[in-house]
Design a binder for these strands. Structure first.
Length: 486
RNA sequence: GCGGAAGUAGCUCACCUGGUAGAGCGACAGCUUCCCAAGCUGUAGGUAGCGGGUUCGAGUCCCGUCUUCCGCUCCA
């Protein structure tokens, strides 16, 4: 049963063919980097989300959830730095087709000047760049590049395109009349919805530090290059948890969550050898430590989840712009017997991409298998070995033939089971064909009702991963499946 | 964004140097066998991604455009 492959385009095709992922607006030629979840995909996605939600909230008495709106006050993004820090002017070299961030291009030239001991020129250049950047003067910036004859490292020419603004955030209008004053953004991360509700949750939930707030929801980012299927989409879903801690303890908690999150991925069924940490060397403006948990996708190791020590940056910023005191009074006593008192909590963030996790599950589950049957002929199947606890359908109920009362028994069993888990009923085609279909959508268990069932009330249960089957009492089916999916 | 490749039925593809679309699989209905796909009969489904041009005539040639995949680039 070897010959497993992991061809990415086959996985994508399989996702479409079996109702997991469809390109958005496909009848209109699709919409770049936007995808829809189909009837099976939505179920798998929900199951992954629920598994995360339960592990965060139900299993941690000090973590609660919220569901903040996608629309937020525009100052939110001023405070978070998204307006100022994440809208980068870009420029392309026409000869090499290399693209640069304008500030990076100029800074690297400034470094060169510094190396040559031309400190004054370096200083003047950077000062001029900052002036122009703050004014969004793209013509001036381009002139600055050309006047200094700053060249592309690859083509070594100074043949540049115009400078274009890259906007991270999508905007829209809140009022009925469009205009700059009504411009609001679609959130580029769910985290800010948690930060602005910090006091609401802390006070109404009487939360004591350390505690966390979890949230799942859509976020929107205008990617420079959005590709690789659902790995990098313009509309995607995050599962974030912000953990508020006492200042000075953030790095301990960072280590704690770093380890806890990796274990969580393993508990979901992701193979250990396909996971690794990737420490950030260059840190974002809000972080004092950051690590990614990466999964080895068919296109290489890529970020699945980020764990960031965000310091008190966000709460402090929101405190300043909103003029509200986003602080916490800590009654716990220090070693000297005094309470810790008022402080702005530090934050450790865990942020996982639900769509990326979905892609991880599909990637690790997808297998094309070939083997030789006893009679010497070749056989094959495509199977999704989705962990049973998150598979869309748990159990297929199949009458061996659609007569002699077998469908009736099957439907009765279905009624008995469907309160507990998702079932799939199928009476068409040969039993082997039906097993194959269930393999292709990842249903972990099938039971077949046959004539013997009428005599002794037993059924055959067939396991997706091993294709082995065994005889169990009809009355045990629900219990057996429940055990295997919990 | 650049380069390469590709877009014909749900899927995989065919139609060679232009003459008004076919197959296999799949789906659906029925029959048959009955514990691991590919038995029989029938049915549905495509203005060949979209737009324009050349031509008496274009899926087939030309241009544009959109989308996807691969590589590069970028990435909070």
């Amino acid at each position: 049963m070897a010959n497993e492959t992991n061809n990415f385009s086959e996985i994508i095709a399989h996702c479409k063919e079996y109702g997991y992922i469809f390109p958005s607006s496909e009848i209109y030629d699709g919409l770049s980097a936007v995808y829809d979840y189909g009837q099976n995909g939505v179920q798998l996605k929900k199951n992954i989300r629920d598994y995360w939600w339960k592990s965060m909230t139900q299993l941690h008495e000090n973590i609660v959830g919220i569901d903040a709106a996608i629309f937020m006050h525009p100052l939110t993004w001023k405070a978070s730095g998204h307006i100022d820090n994440f809208s980068d002017p870009m420029i392309d070299n026409k000869d090499s087709n290399k693209r640069y961030r304008v500030d990076h291009l100029i800074e690297s030239y400034a470094d060169k000047l510094a190396h040559e001991g031309r400190k004054e020129e370096e200083y003047a250049l950077l000062k001029r760049m900052d002036e122009l950047l703050s004014k969004d003067d793209f013509t001036g910036l381009r002139n600055l590049i050309e006047d200094n004859n700053i060249t592309c490292a690859v083509s070594e020419t100074c043949n540049w395109t115009d400078i274009r603004q890259f906007n991270l955030m999508f905007d829209t209008q809140l009022g009925t009349i469009s205009g700059e004053a009504d411009k609001i953004y679609l959130r580029p991360e769910t985290a800010q919805g948690i930060f602005v509700n910090f006091l609401n949750v802390q006070k109404t939930g009487r939360m004591r530090i350390p505690f966390g707030i979890a949230q799942t929801g859509k976020a929107f980012r205008n990617e420079i290059v959005a590709r690789q299927f659902i790995f990098r989409m313009r509309e995607f879903e995050q599962m974030e948890m912000q953990f508020f801690v006492r200042p000075g303890t953030e790095l301990q908690w960072y280590e704690y969550w770093k380890e806890a999150r990796l274990k969580w991925h393993e508990s979901l069924g992701i193979p250990v050898e396909k996971l690794r940490y990737h420490n950030h060397v260059k840190l974002a403006h809000y972080a004092n430590a950051a690590v990614d948990i990466e999964y080895e996708f068919p296109f290489g190791f890529k970020e699945l989840e980020g764990i960031h020590s965000r310091t008190d940056f966000d709460l402090k910023q929101h405190g300043e712009l909103s003029k509200k005191k986003l602080q916490y009074f800590d009654n716990d006593l220090k070693e000297d017997g005094e309470p810790y008192g008022n402080y702005i909590p530090y934050v450790v963030e865990t942020s996982v991409g639900l769509d990326r996790l979905f892609l991880t599950v599909i990637s690790m589950s997808y297998a094309e298998e070939k083997w030789t049957k006893e009679d010497g002929s070749e056989d094959s199947r495509v199977v999704l070995r989705i962990p049973a606890k998150i598979a869309p359908y748990k159990l297929a109920i199949l009458p061996l033939v659609k007569k002699d009362g077998l469908p009736e028994i099957a439907k009765q069993l279905m009624n008995e089971c469907k309160e507990s888990f998702y079932t799939f009923y199928e009476e068409k085609d040969s039993i082997g064909k039906r097993y194959r279909r269930m393999d292709a959508i990842g249903t972990p268990f099938c039971v077949t009702i046959d004539h013997r069932t009428k005599d002794d009330n037993t059924v055959t249960i067939r396991y997706r991963d091993t294709m082995l089957q065994e005889r169990i009492p009809l009355s045990d089916v629900r219990k057996v499946v429940m055990e295997k999916i919990s």
